[in-house]
Simulated scan of single mutants.
Amino acid sequence: MKWTIPNTLTVLRLLAAPGVAVMFLYFQRPWADWFALTLFIGAAITDWFDGYLARLWKQESKFGAMMDPIADKAMVLIAIMVITGYNGMTPWLILPATVILFREVFVSGLREFLGAKAGLLKVTRLAKIKTTAQMVAIAALFLGTGLEYLNGVAMHGMTPEQYAQAVVDGAAEPILGCGRRDCASFANLIGLWLIWFAALLTAITGLEYFIKALPHLRDEK
Score class of each variant (00 low, 15 high):
67 M>K: 05
48 W>E: 05
92 W>P: 02
112 E>C: 06
183 C>A: 15
184 A>Y: 00
210 F>C: 05
61 S>L: 12
168 V>C: 09
172 A>F: 06
80 I>F: 05
68 D>K: 05
79 A>P: 01
212 K>P: 00
139 A>V: 14
147 L>M: 13
22 V>P: 01
61 S>V: 15
180 R>L: 11
204 I>G: 01
49 F>P: 00
209 Y>W: 08
29 R>Q: 15
147 L>W: 00
103 R>P: 01
45 I>Q: 02
128 K>W: 07
165 Q>Y: 06
23 M>E: 03
95 L>W: 11
200 L>T: 14
97 A>M: 09
163 Y>H: 10
112 E>Y: 09
32 A>R: 04
181 R>A: 14
133 A>Q: 06
168 V>W: 01
24 F>G: 05
139 A>P: 09
72 D>Q: 08
148 E>R: 12
145 T>Y: 04
100 I>D: 01
24 F>C: 07
121 L>Q: 03
90 T>P: 00
35 F>W: 10
116 A>W: 02
115 G>F: 13
14 L>M: 08
133 A>F: 12
204 I>Y: 03
13 R>E: 08
82 V>L: 06
160 P>L: 14
113 F>C: 02
60 E>H: 03
111 R>V: 13
58 K>H: 14
47 D>F: 10
162 Q>A: 15
148 E>K: 15
88 G>V: 12
156 H>E: 14
45 I>A: 13
160 P>Y: 14
16 A>S: 14
72 D>Y: 07
83 I>H: 02
45 I>T: 10
180 R>A: 11
86 Y>H: 09
90 T>H: 11
169 D>I: 08
200 L>M: 12
20 V>D: 00
119 G>V: 10
95 L>H: 07
154 A>K: 03
22 V>E: 05
38 T>C: 09
35 F>I: 15
138 I>P: 00
196 W>P: 02
177 G>E: 08
19 G>M: 12
36 A>N: 06
210 F>K: 00
176 L>V: 14
52 Y>I: 05
95 L>T: 15
178 C>P: 00
75 M>D: 05
18 P>W: 08
126 L>W: 08
15 L>F: 10
169 D>A: 13
75 M>R: 03
41 I>K: 12
217 L>M: 14
145 T>H: 10
23 M>S: 15
